[in-house]
Simulated assay, not measured.
Amino acid sequence: MKEELTQDAMKLPLLISVPHGGYSVPPDIVHRIALDFSDIFPDSDPCTRSIYSFRDEVCYYHDSNIARAIIDLNRAPDDLPPENPDGVVKNHTVMETPVYRQGHRPDSRLIQDLLERYYYPYHQQIAEDMTDPALVCGLDCHSMLEYPPGTDTGENERPFICLSNCGDENGSGEDLDISCPADLINLFADCLRSEFPEEADRIVLNNPFKGGHISQLHGKQIPWIQIELNRSAYLRRPWFDPESLQVNGKRLQYLRHKLFQAILSFCEEAGSMRYLPNQPSLQYHLRHFAPSLL
């Protein structure tokens, strides 16, 4: 009799991290914060917990509801103000808005408490998940401003998607320095170009971002790729109302669908490149566990 396949066996052998999708402020420090939602929204990676919501399709998925302005999970734990005002704890947002009311910046004791509550558990769980020998890759998922902070002209427009592995524009670099092999990140880029052919020339590697702390740290154990999606893909009219900060749900679902199709193609092709262990057919996975994405 044919052995029954379990749902866990059918999940894609990936670890998804979405560290900047939250908007929440811990209740015990709300009185310290100078920001309102209109400040927190653009400082976070808006809607990424919807765009990359593949919790049911991959082996491991992690996100956070805590705002990036409070604890930045993509920074080293000792990357702190005043040496870096944009570190793991921040003095100001990416738009230079002060995070804390005057005289209410956290002291070292409060910083350590925030790290213990929100930062270390996130990274500890990722580290535990990476002991699974079935995993082939981690994807650290973000969005980026259409232009660098403080600029809004076409000549400074960022790419549609930036994939990063701490390498060069070809994904190459010293083996000990890059977070995943060049052929693997180039494979993922090609899969994305197939799903977004109109943006193919604007899907690039390691520019403007080389890869953050998550991919650099955890890429020492398994391959990690950082992905940055340009917010112009969904935070622009007609999909976005800048006054109400409302985003068109159908547009988010469309982006999720296209990204997931690229991820599926990536896993199929990576299997032929011998990056994947023996896995049941991904088409079986699609038919049984993700029929809505077909």
Results as ranks from 00 to 15, higher is better:
94 V>C: 06
50 S>F: 10
57 E>G: 09
47 C>Q: 14
79 D>Y: 05
65 N>M: 09
72 D>S: 08
74 N>M: 08
85 P>Q: 05
50 S>G: 04
46 P>R: 13
48 T>K: 14
67 A>S: 15
102 Q>Y: 00
52 Y>M: 11
99 V>N: 03
49 R>P: 10
55 R>G: 15
71 I>H: 05
73 L>P: 09
102 Q>C: 00
63 D>R: 07
56 D>Q: 15
47 C>S: 12
87 G>P: 04
44 S>H: 13
88 V>A: 13
98 P>E: 02
75 R>K: 08
51 I>Q: 14
66 I>K: 13
87 G>R: 05
85 P>M: 04
66 I>C: 12
59 C>F: 06
62 H>L: 15
95 M>I: 00
58 V>I: 07
81 P>T: 08
64 S>T: 07
49 R>V: 10
85 P>N: 05
46 P>L: 03
87 G>D: 02
67 A>E: 02
93 T>M: 01
69 A>N: 04
50 S>I: 13
71 I>Q: 08
78 D>R: 09
89 V>D: 02
63 D>K: 08
46 P>K: 15
54 F>T: 06
45 D>W: 12
45 D>G: 13
92 H>E: 10
86 D>K: 14
70 I>C: 01
82 P>D: 02
58 V>D: 10
102 Q>R: 00
55 R>P: 11
73 L>G: 09
59 C>Y: 03
95 M>D: 07
55 R>L: 10
79 D>M: 04
77 P>L: 07
91 N>G: 08
